[in-house]
Simulated scan of single mutants.
Amino acid sequence: MDLPELYKVADFLARYSISRTSFYREVAANRIRIRKFGSATRIAREDAEAWAASLPVSNGEAA
């Protein structure tokens, strides 16, 4: 059985350049899946990549 690669919250925040508040807002909206180990919160790499891929893409033009 392969175990998923897990990010600590601080590592996820740094990698994806979002604030802790924005992170927990995304979690509350069920857009980022988290895993709990006691009080520790982790994010699987696959879930992080799926979240990043779901973000809107802009061509740089104002709407």
Rank of each mutant, 00 (worst) to 15 (best):
A10D: 13
P56Q: 08
I43A: 06
A63Q: 14
N59R: 10
V27M: 13
R25Q: 10
R42M: 04
D2L: 15
I32F: 04
A63I: 14
N30G: 14
L55E: 11
V27P: 12
E46C: 04
S39D: 06
S54C: 11
V57R: 06
R33Y: 02
A53G: 09
S39N: 11
V57M: 03
E49C: 04
S58K: 13
S17K: 08
A50K: 15
E26I: 12
R25M: 08
L55I: 09
R33D: 01
S22T: 08
A50H: 12
W51L: 12
Y7E: 07
D11K: 12
R15E: 04
G38I: 00
S39K: 15
R42S: 02
L55D: 09
I43G: 06
S54R: 15
L13W: 07
R25C: 07
I34T: 13
A44V: 01
S19Y: 03
F23P: 05
M1A: 05
Y16R: 04
F37V: 03
T41Y: 02
V9H: 13
A50T: 11
A44I: 00
R45A: 13
A63P: 14
A14F: 12
Y16N: 03
A63L: 15
N59D: 05
E26M: 15
E49M: 10
A52S: 07
F37D: 00
A48F: 07
A50F: 12
S17R: 09
E26P: 13
